[in-house]
């Protein structure tokens, strides 16, 4: 708990994120650029995966990873806020939601673009992963809509935390239920028990691209969190001034 409390200090967060966010932006942009350059121009195309269209993988796979990681992060932050009431955890959950929704939408869009030439269809209802990611997208939308509908910051935080936690314990069940449908999606080829079986020529650009997207995501979360902290401070300052006048 000691470590968590240390991170929960907004002063420390502002001081840390002030230099960490720009570093993440730069590193993230650099890695994404390198991954895209490798993916689009350098690596050979894979005819089994539909030829040149498989290059969309270098955006699609990082987006899919972030879609899942961001919901996990949002639900964890909600849990921390609900139990320990660290304001920073709520600020984090609030910042993650729109960004998570954007990367989830990116995953769906790139998946569709990959699906059209390889499977012959933009959308495949039989596919368990497409369905799971779609419902993840809806969970993000519901979370944001619920927060926006609440009339105070405290209520938005509490309602959002309850919904994020209810959603999180439902995610495995949703995943299991949609997995029951037959899947024509290829099996995961990065995360397998025997280690990655993808050719190294694809693996490195993909991993670097994934790391780049994650850093960019983290940097944007930090920017939104900083803006939220200053907004809340300004509101408190304003309330103090009005009370004193």
């Amino acid at each position: 708990m000691g470590m968590l409390s240390a991170f929960a200090n907004p002063h420390r967060f502002l001081a840390l994120s002030k230099w960490l966010a720009p570093v993440f932006y730069l590193l993230g942009a650099g890695l994404i650029a390198w991954g895209l350059w490798q993916g689009l121009y350098v690596v050979p195309k894979d005819e089994v995966q539909g030829g040149d269209i498989m290059r969309v993988m270098f955006v699609h796979v990082p987006a899919a990873w972030l879609a899942m990681a961001s919901y996990t992060a949002m639900a964890s932050a909600s849990f921390v806020w609900f139990i320990w009431r660290h304001e920073l955890a709520d600020i984090a959950a609030k910042a993650i939601a729109p960004l998570g929704a954007v990367w989830t939408a990116l995953c769906l869009a790139t998946g569709s673009i990959w699906g059209k030439p390889t499977w012959g269809t933009w959308w495949q209802w039989d596919d368990a992963r497409m369905m799971s990611v779609l419902f993840l997208f809806f969970l993000f939308l519901g979370y944001m809509a619920l927060r926006a509908a609440m009339d105070s910051r405290q209520k938005a935080a509490r309602a959002g935390a309850i919904l994020a936690m209810v959603g999180a314990i439902n995610v495995p069940l949703i995943k299991f239920s949609v997995d029951l449908f037959t899947s024509l999606h290829q099996d995961s080829s990065v995360l397998t028990a025997e280690g990655p079986k993808m050719a190294a020529v694809y693996l490195w650009p993909l991993l670097m691209s994934g790391l780049g997207h994650s850093l960019l995501f983290g940097a944007m979360v930090m920017t939104l969190m900083r803006a939220e902290i200053w907004t809340r401070r300004a509101a408190r300052q304003r309330a103090r001034l009005l009370a004193g006048a």
Partner: peptide, 22 residues
């Protein structure tokens, strides 16, 4: 969750539909 929200019906639908999936 939307008990205090005016016109909460659409919000309920958006919140509940992913939970209806399984």
């Amino acid at each position: 969750l939307s008990a205090t929200v005016r016109r909460g019906g659409l919000l309920i639908a958006l919140i509940a539909l992913p939970l209806y999936v399984p």
